[in-house]
């Protein structure tokens, strides 16, 4: 009988929750894979790591990682994570959530967390639609794309997430597709080591729904689309990085140093108490 060796990352996954719910060809598993690889390469202390998700297909990611994890309400993981990080700055708090969760219902929390520069790390699975609820239009759905709620083609303009993140004050901003596994993993490692608010957008296939409505029935077809149209342009202008069917600019867009909110507040606390002691 063949002896089956365990997958090297199996220890980062909650066995009881496997197999995950994601469809064949869905990019969510790749994001999870790259994330745990980054955690593995950094030899992170799992006791100090908290993974937070909102609601959506990708929202299940929190439950799959064998670390501290919280599956919150739809749109609110960033606000929730803000509480965790401020309450215990020693924790490394990572949000893995969807485009709808983070930028429609949760858009306000995103821009404010970036503005405050709270030291939380956001990884967004951008699959251009609301997967979990059956493929409705969302804030990143391309113009003219077909979804269950845009049967005549989308007439809304999508957010350019990296531009939004950069403009809101994030200290680290990158975009990759699920085809760029090596670069994505390295980028996640960098993200996890940054001070302040960092963001990675991962363009990810949802063949089951978005693909089906838009003539890319399999994950492979969607991944081939990424291969064909993506171009690595590090530190290019995020304002010009809009995703179109013809072009997906990937790479790092922002990598700056800025003191985090949690550091500032603890500096203030120390300062106040020093003054008071002198009274």
């Amino acid at each position: 009988m063949e002896t089956v060796m365990a997958h090297p990352f199996a220890k980062y996954l909650r066995e009881a929750m496997m197999p995950h719910i994601w469809c064949s060809g869905c990019g969510n598993g790749i994001i999870l894979n790259c994330f745990v690889q980054a955690v593995d390469e950094l030899q992170m202390d799992l006791n100090k790591l908290v993974v937070v998700s909102g609601i959506g297909c990708i929202g299940r990611a929190a439950g799959y990682v064998n670390t501290n994890s919280f599956h919150t309400t739809h749109g609110r993981p960033i606000a929730f994570a803000t509480g965790i990080k401020l309450a215990n700055p020693e924790l490394e708090v990572v949000i893995i959530s969807g485009d709808g969760d983070l930028f429609a219902i949760g858009g306000n929390h995103f821009i404010h967390a970036a503005r405050r520069n709270i030291g939380i790390k956001v990884i967004c699975a951008n699959n251009f639609n609301y997967g979990m609820t059956g493929g409705q239009q969302g804030p990143t759905t391309p113009v003219e794309a077909l979804t269950t709620t845009t049967p005549y083609g989308n007439i809304e303009h999508p957010f350019n997430l990296v531009h939004l993140a950069a403009a809101s004050g994030a200290t680290y901003v990158a975009r990759w597709t699920t085809l760029h596994v090596r670069r994505l993993t390295q980028s996640i490692k960098k993200l996890l080591q940054k001070e302040g608010f960092g963001f990675i957008e991962v363009v990810s296939p949802c063949p089951e729904i978005f693909g089906r409505y838009n003539k890319m029935r399999t994950g492979l077809e969607m991944m081939e689309w990424f291969r064909k149209v993506s171009a690595i342009e590090n530190f290019s202008d995020p304002a010009k990085a809009e995703i179109t069917p013809e072009r997906i600019v990937v790479g790092e867009f922002v990598d700056i140093a800025k003191i985090s909110y949690e550091k500032l507040i603890h500096e203030k606390i120390a300062e106040i108490n020093e003054k008071k002691m002198q009274w």
Binding site: P8, I30, N33, C34, Q37, T178, G219
Partner: peptide
């Protein structure tokens, strides 16, 4: 190890 990383289901790895 591209296959290891790109597999959404943790179903392949190389040693």
């Amino acid at each position: 190890s591209f296959c290891t990383s790109v597999c959404p289901d943790f179903a392949i790895f190389i040693v």
